[in-house]
Write a protein that binds this DNA or RNA. Structure first.
Lengths: 196, 196, 196, 196
DNA sequence: CAATAACCGAGACGGTACGTCTAGTCTTCCC
DNA sequence: GGGAAGACTAGACGTACCGTCTCGGTTATTG
């Protein structure tokens, strides 16, 4: 076993976890992803840099944790139709994507894809979770008889989330319209799946 | 008259422009976006750093220029149907997106959105060009009578390109399947537009 | 209170101070003043450049500190005569001037006189110290009755040290002869002062 | 024979020689030796850099030429005494040294001693000329019977010019007092030589 | 009077060092 | 052992300057 012994010595101060997250989010908004420095986070949080690196291995992990916090996405309550379920999933993910400034998400994605290991973790946890949720929704539709066969979840994922992602992060489109876009996409994807 | 003086002093060496672009692309493939350094580009190209900074104000501009070279996208030949035109547009853009490694595109997008001015230029030139092409395609459909009214080009853009973008850059999906995905998306979007 | 906070944070590593001084002196001898680079010093000392710039604001200050180390010159023991005292002072200073290669001293003097602040520090500390020592020696001669009145210390400084300085740094003369030159100068200056 | 053929092609523009010298002197006064750049000289003189490098091999040579111009020092008219001749030589050299700002002379000396070849040229031409003049003066004294034997010219050089050099360049002393210092030095050296 | 050869201003070129900055690690004293 | 403070290594950044070279063009002498 590596790492510090458990239950020995001074326990970590939980307030510091909060302070790091808060400082990171503030500075992300104030200065943007590229100009966020570890020294600035430490100073803003009123702590030492070591306290950060005791919790997160890299800058990317810290921002990841401070930004993408609650990744415990759950399958939506059964709405009774595939279209309704897909719309619910889409809205939830769109809300998460819209919560952070675009430059933060782009910076994070760049860092994630710059590093093999981080990329794998991201795909495994985050992407995987979304596809698990979609899988559940599709299973329900299969059980209901809406679908004749199980489609490729990855393709459905791209069809459903791609447009919203593109709207928010590439077109930097109006966030008010995302709800309408989600509905359109859900309907279109559901029709497409049911039909073929 | 703005711009550099004409016909005065030693002209810029066109071979150097090429050498920079070539070195940048090579190093991007060999080391990835994050590990590309200006010194490395200069050394590989056999030139001084000053020659780079005389042409590009920042690292980002250099990579942008070296990567996103020919942005002279044209409306596709009229296929006779909205679905066919959309599929053609989608395939073209998908091919461009698939040409560069994902980490390069993510790095570029991050840098683009980190800087206000660069973001505006990107949107104006690149995004704008794509939407102009889509507008032409939609105009044809309107003229044909396939569409009753002109839809929001930005929404169509997101619906059409979003899934492909997501597939290639977020899911890091199989590139062989992009053609099939493009077809699916084009059909779905065309149906959706014709119907509503 | 000015200056860095006491007893807070990691203290500066005294070994690094030594390493910088040692590396600077070695490279000064090996390559000369003009070809001494900060990167070379850092590499030779096995440290980062930041550790140097944390201690010295500029290249000049670093070389100054590494070269002009012990400026704690003391009045020589009373030899009983003005001539003997002057010869002792002259020999000491000649030995210091002869310790460093001429190009180092010229480089240093050039940098010192290129910067107002550095020039003032040099004059105040180094020149001032030498003139303090000369003043003590002249006071003794006055007390002995060798001198009727106190001469201008600055003039005596120039008369005594000027020839040795010129010999070593401008004529690049034989260093063996400096002792004889010192004796000649001391005698000549002492005679001149006593007489007039 | 290397170099361009004589009397063939367009002759050099004499106005440019002047313009370079003038621009160099002006900028030396305005910015000092260390901050004088070739581009600045060219711009100020309204010429291209190539025109400078066609005339001078290096920055140092240019400043040397612009500063130390007339090095055609001649033996002074016979004053009838060694003391008088030495005072005349000393005053002449002091006037030359006092003509340029101290930082320029220090910068020049540093550059001269940074390069082996330049150092040799400087010693051979400039130092050599001064010692030739001194030799003439000493020959006269020998002929007059003031001196019993020929002293070492280099030592006389150091004794005579050293104090003035030190006063002007190291002590940065009052330039009004240099005349008096020259007289004192000349008397002291003459006495010293005659005596022994 | 045309050809030749060296000149000219402007400014791009390769190279090199500068002083700054940041990430992630380490060290001190304190609790 | 955790924490704050801050020094540490490593290495890229963008700037500045040097001395050279190249462009279009000019001005003398030579043939």
């Amino acid at each position: 076993m590596t790492g510090p012994k458990q239950n020995v010595g001074r326990p970590r101060d939980a307030q510091i976890d909060d302070a790091i997250v808060r400082a990171t989010r503030e500075l992300l908004v104030e200065r943007g992803y590229a100009k966020l420095t570890m020294d600035a986070v430490a100073k803003r949080a009123g702590i030492g840099k070591a306290a950060i690196y005791r919790r997160f291995a890299t800058r990317q992990e810290m921002i990841f944790a401070a930004t993408v916090h609650g990744m415990e996405e759950q399958p939506p309550p059964d709405s009774g139709t595939l279209r309704g379920d897909l719309a619910a999933v889409c809205r939830t993910i769109a809300a998460q994507l819209g919560a952070a400034p675009p430059d933060v998400l782009h910076g994070l994605l760049a860092d994630i894809h710059a590093d093999q290991a981080l990329g794998a973790r991201f795909t495994g946890s985050f992407i995987g979770r979304e596809q698990y949720v979609l899988g559940e929704v599709l299973d329900r539709a299969l059980a209901r008889g809406e679908l004749a066969a199980m489609p490729d979840v990855r393709v459905v994922h791209a069809l459903l989330i791609g447009p919203v992602f593109f709207w928010l992060l590439i077109l930097i489109g109006d966030r008010e319209q995302v709800a309408a876009l989600s509905a359109t996409v859900a309907e279109s994807v559901a029709d497409s799946l049911v039909k073929g």
